[in-house]
Amino acid sequence: MAGGTLQNTGVDGAAFAGLRHRLLFPSWLTIGVLLVIPVLLMLVYSFLTKEFRGGVVWEFSLAAYDQFFFDRGLFGDEPVKIEWTYINIFIRSIVQASLATVFCLLIGFPTAYYIATRPASSRAIWLFMITVPYWVNLLIRTVSMKFLIRDTGPLNHWLMQAGLISEPFHIINTNIAVQLGLFYSYLPFMVLPIYAAVERFDFALVEAAHDLYANRWTTLRRILIPVVRPGVIAGCILVFVPSLGAFLAPDLLGGAKNFMIGSLIEEQFRGSAGNWPFGAAASMILLSLVLLVLMYYARSESRRP
């Protein structure tokens, strides 16, 4: 594109095209090394044979995908039987990630709206307060959360002292704990894009809607939300995608019963119990799921006026 316009100026176009390629090289290199090669590597590994004690044997195999989907595989004489263990983990992960997205949206939208409608001088302080906990490593924050919510932790202590409950409220190692962890981990990813959209929103439109007989609720539904929709969707994607692959919160807060995809994959690459091709296959399936969600979004967006 840039080359085209340069050519039109009558300067030697080929030289500029060469220059353009050279200038873009660092970008291509970064994308190639950090994105394309690792994904291709995973794709290739997922079709290799498992080596005892981790690693792979360079021999084509569908065993990993077979293990993921089927109890009695496609290649035997007996009828095919679906293996539900891993599919269930995926379903649970999708449910958890969706719930985390919904909760982040329910809390994040009003928060972002509140911050964006403060006077410009105090907005920076609010944003700072939202982001400051995130300067601490996620692992440390998740462990801290574990201490807060365990049976003998401060949360239960306060609740019991306040007389709200008589015995500890058992949260740790439940789905609720995982949910809490995901919510807390990714809330700012919801708040920030919505904040950016609301901050750009022209509040004269609210007056225009009131002027045209719309009440507050209708104005929210028909004017504010549709106009800030791109920010809301960006927030949802930014919360949903990492929640789906999260492993710290489910590992540390959910215990063995509340496994999610992230933990499953992580386990395959750790220690002697690992199975690299299976981990790679699970990653590829996760990646396909995420791509499907994004493609669905892109398609529904392109159909809008």
Binding site: A204, E207, A208, Y213, V227, P305
Partner: peptide, 29 residues
């Protein structure tokens, strides 16, 4: 309140709803 007054405004900056077509803007009220 403003939304109960049988009075309409043509705003200086127009304040048209950016996500609605011309027809939908006119239909809104």
């Amino acid at each position: 309140p403003a939304n109960k007054r049988p009075v309409n405004t043509v705003f200086q900056q127009y304040s048209l709803f950016p996500h609605m077509s011309v027809l939908d803007n006119i239909l809104f009220g």
